[in-house]
Computed example of a mutant assay.
Amino acid sequence: MEIQEIEVNSFLTKSKSFDHVFNPYRGCMHRCKYCYAHYMKDYTQHKEAWGDYVDVKKIKRYHIPKNAKRIMLSSVTDPYQPIEAKYKVTRNALKHLIGFSGTVSILTKSKLVTRDIDLFKQMEHVEVGMSIATVDEKFRRIMEEGASPIKERMEALKKIHDAGITTYVFVAPMLPKLTNYKEIIRESKPYVDYYMFDTLRLKGENKTWVMEEIKKHAPTLLPLYQQIYNQGKRHYFELLSKQIEEFCIQEKVEYQLFF
């Protein structure tokens, strides 16, 4: 693992999707094979494989634009990946967000997020989400090698929810025929305020990695994945979106679809 500290002038980055984002690290130790953020290597010039390097940001100035309404942690890294336990870049940033009148939205795959409940309680508007793509722990270890086990993520959500903090689950990426969204909802429903859903998006290296794992561990699904990602046939996700809507209405849970 290649780790280095880098000085950066900016705290927040303007984003079309999230208003403003804060990425405390470049790179991620979770090594998720499907991660779209591997393209960041094109900008950082890292020769190491995705998951084998992390740049730790040393923030010079914590400036929050007056027009900022929503701040997302994070968009191309995990703010609570294992290295955060040592460097506390995320925790230090959160201290500067106390008093911010907008919404702070956090998304992670790590149980470490519970460490900062004391700071969340001091914020006006904060929500904490867990990204969950599968409840199959064996498959989780294949696809998300360095992330927290699903059971620990569920326990973290419950602890945060019990502390009076808004929680959500980002059911994503939805791997065709492998993401059991019904089971995820049924298991987490008592301590989750709302759900978001997004599809598996494959391009470049992550497409190669995921296809290799499907061929190795779920070969009967390979034709379906080839239809979707090689031939561009989207019927599967069109049907899935309708099924998700019906189930969420049935279960009386709030939801947002991004496909």
Results as ranks from 00 to 15, higher is better:
124 E>D: 14
87 Y>E: 14
92 N>A: 09
153 R>S: 02
103 T>P: 01
117 I>M: 11
142 I>Q: 01
85 A>E: 14
112 L>W: 05
163 A>W: 07
82 P>S: 11
77 T>D: 00
151 K>I: 10
77 T>S: 05
99 G>I: 03
156 A>M: 10
93 A>N: 02
89 V>L: 07
138 K>R: 12
79 P>M: 07
97 L>C: 02
100 F>M: 10
162 D>L: 13
161 H>Y: 13
118 D>M: 03
139 F>W: 14
115 R>F: 00
111 K>C: 06
126 V>K: 12
134 T>M: 05
99 G>C: 06
93 A>W: 06
77 T>N: 04
147 A>Y: 10
100 F>L: 11
143 M>F: 12
121 K>A: 13
84 E>M: 04
78 D>Y: 02
121 K>D: 02
104 V>L: 08
157 L>M: 06
78 D>H: 02
97 L>S: 02
159 K>E: 14
162 D>Q: 15
127 E>M: 13
163 A>D: 09
76 V>F: 12
126 V>Y: 08
113 V>W: 01
144 E>R: 04
76 V>Q: 12
149 P>D: 04
102 G>W: 10
164 G>L: 12
98 I>C: 00
85 A>W: 08
154 M>T: 01
84 E>R: 04
152 E>A: 07
100 F>N: 04
113 V>G: 01
82 P>K: 08
142 I>L: 11
104 V>T: 14
155 E>W: 05
95 K>A: 06
153 R>V: 01
111 K>R: 13
135 V>M: 14
94 L>D: 00
117 I>L: 08
98 I>M: 03
135 V>K: 03
165 I>D: 05
160 I>D: 11
114 T>C: 03
145 E>H: 11
103 T>E: 06
138 K>L: 06
140 R>C: 03
119 L>A: 09
119 L>T: 03
128 V>K: 08
152 E>T: 04
109 K>H: 06
85 A>K: 15
128 V>D: 07
149 P>I: 02
98 I>Y: 03
97 L>D: 03
160 I>G: 09
135 V>G: 01
159 K>H: 04
121 K>M: 12
77 T>Y: 01
128 V>G: 07
120 F>S: 11
157 L>Q: 08
105 S>M: 14
142 I>C: 02
133 A>H: 15
99 G>N: 10
156 A>G: 05
129 G>A: 07
92 N>I: 01
163 A>P: 06
120 F>N: 13
140 R>T: 06
155 E>A: 12
112 L>P: 07
96 H>N: 15
153 R>G: 02
158 K>P: 01
108 T>W: 06
125 H>F: 05
160 I>C: 07
117 I>G: 11
88 K>N: 15
116 D>K: 07
111 K>W: 11
108 T>E: 08
94 L>V: 07
115 R>P: 00
122 Q>M: 10
162 D>H: 09
80 Y>D: 00
103 T>F: 04
149 P>W: 04
85 A>L: 13
100 F>S: 09
160 I>V: 15
134 T>F: 03
156 A>D: 04
117 I>D: 10
156 A>I: 07
132 I>N: 00
83 I>N: 09
140 R>Q: 11
115 R>M: 01
102 G>V: 13
120 F>E: 12
139 F>M: 11
102 G>S: 11
115 R>I: 02
129 G>I: 02
110 S>E: 12
104 V>P: 02
144 E>G: 09
124 E>V: 03
91 R>V: 09
138 K>F: 10
147 A>D: 14
91 R>I: 09
96 H>R: 13
113 V>I: 15
116 D>P: 00
